[in-house]
Amino acid sequence: MTGRFTPGIAAILGLLAIYVFVAVLAPWIVPHNPLRQILLLRLRPPLTYSPSAGWFLLGTDDVGRDLLSRVVDGARASLMVGALSVSVSLLSGTVFGLLAGWFRGWIAIVVMRIVDIVLSIPAILLAVLTVAVLGPSFANLILVLGLTRWPRYTRVAYAQTLQVATLPYIRAAEMAGAHAPRILLRHILPNIAGPLMVVATTEFGLMILFEAGLSFLGLGIQPPYPSWGSIMSEGQNYVASAWWMTVFPGICLFGVVLCVNLLGDWLRDRLDPRAQSR
């Protein structure tokens, strides 16, 4: 997609900055303790005011917890899972791709065959199976998403390294006596970073969706800690009487992923040489 649908990259970056800001500062800006239950104030609609407890701007959930505080805290969970799992898979995927592209031969054959194998198990199912075996926890969630997604980066890093490695300046560096690690890090990595950043951006959006999806299924962030997915899963039971429990976390999730995807598209137009002709 070209950058024709970009309602201001500034607006997208602004919204994402707000998301990161809210997620990082969550413990200090939540109006209520997101875990505190007030059973007398169950399933109250948005803009509820209680003389004893104060305002509940987005209403309360099925056990009387403040929805706004839970949504804010859920932003923290999604950002942490997204950032950490992308870092794990970006780092490992890039290393494998660089090595396969540089040494070629049997190393490339083995690495790329493993990439094909991992990619032929649909990611969500691979994640579901692994979490189910290891048991759901925050660390396992990162591990699983990192382990299932690295091949995406390896494919890109491999193809790009193959191209760049044939360029004259790499030969020059080799003849000047530079060792493989130095060439890979100083001369090849900077030149393949653009396409990798494009992949990392779209993967970040996907990881946020996966975290929410796994938490929705009960395999991600565990209760009572909030995740946008688990809030919506609780809310589904009350969809007819308490729409706010599914609508508000959903808007946040959809909004963040949409911004990330638009940003990824904008980056692709600028950083990915293959897309520039289109």
Binding site: F5, L209, G213, G229, S233, A240, G250, V257, L258, N261
Partner: peptide, 22 residues
Amino acid sequence: LAALVFAGQSMPTFWSGILMIL
């Protein structure tokens, strides 16, 4: 149409599902 495509790509299936049920 690009807006529709981006919306489809960014929509969590469980959220659109629950909204449609609602």
